[in-house]
Design a protein around this nucleic acid. Sequence first.
DNA 1: TCAATTTGACCCCT
DNA 2: AGGGGTCAAATTGA
Length: 314
Amino acid sequence: MDWELNTLLNELTQGRDVTNQLLNHLHPSSSPQTRQLLLDKILRSYEKALSILNWNGSVVEAKPAVTAFESSPCDISSPGSEVSDKKRVFKKRKTSSGWTEQVRVFSGASLDNPLDDGYCWRKYGQKAILGSNFPRGYYRCTHRPSQGCLATKQVQRSDNDPTIFEVKYRGRHTCNQASHFAATFIPVSAESKEKGNDSRKRQHLLESGLEVKTEGLDNRQDIFPWFPFPVESEQVRNSSFVEAIMENNIMETSESNYFSMSPCHMGSFESDLTDINSDPTSVTNSPIGDLDISSLDKLEFDPSLSFDNPEFFT
DNA sequence: TCAATTTGACCCCT
DNA sequence: AGGGGTCAAATTGA
């Protein structure tokens, strides 16, 4: 615990220091490489700090960490039900508080595959959500039968911005796909965030962007146990991420991780593209306790904010 | 042929 | 009562 707090402080402090350094390199004469390096360092620091926050449920604990999936096997529906002998097996109804992760996917370029997080998912349902224009897709780990992996996720396309997908994770991956994820999540370019509906077919793997929101606050490890949140995103580089942090205070900015899709199963998300919907309100609940840093978990890049927007730098 | 997706129905929870 | 999550038969695709 102490170690984590120290590390957290160190990372945040480092982020601040490097940010100051970056300020000194904002002159046109300064080499882009240097600025990029500094940006990377800053991002790395923040990402690490955020990771710590989210990996440590005791630090940033908000929502109940245990989900129905994790806590108990399925309940059998009442015998009297007309479903007869079939297994009308239902887990406890999920509530938003059970989600461990929320991921927002930016990428018009990845409409085919808004979010390939390195795991293989199987779609097991789809529902129209009240108040949402797009249905919500329900996925569970492909390895559930074979490895008993109980991880699940929901994917919805945003009403406000169809290029944005919100992915809610739940449960812990117990399968051995982790390595895929770590190996395949790489930074993406800023362009990917813009509407690139055309080129997505071929490039979505490389151009997809994700915004990871840790509103679940449980354990990021549940989803990205080893993920070394990338910091080299062009999107970030080209953006005013740092400035945004400085301007709005990181607490209100966002934790944003952009990475590309993994090759695990490129087609698995096709349905998402057409099905997914978003419930804008679903990402607003981030009961992160009383820590000031709680806001970190709500960090997000407002898609409407253009990173290229000079206003950020002012 | 088998695996993945679709889709309608069912059940739980608020 | 209705929304949301899940099941599983039917369908689709490789």
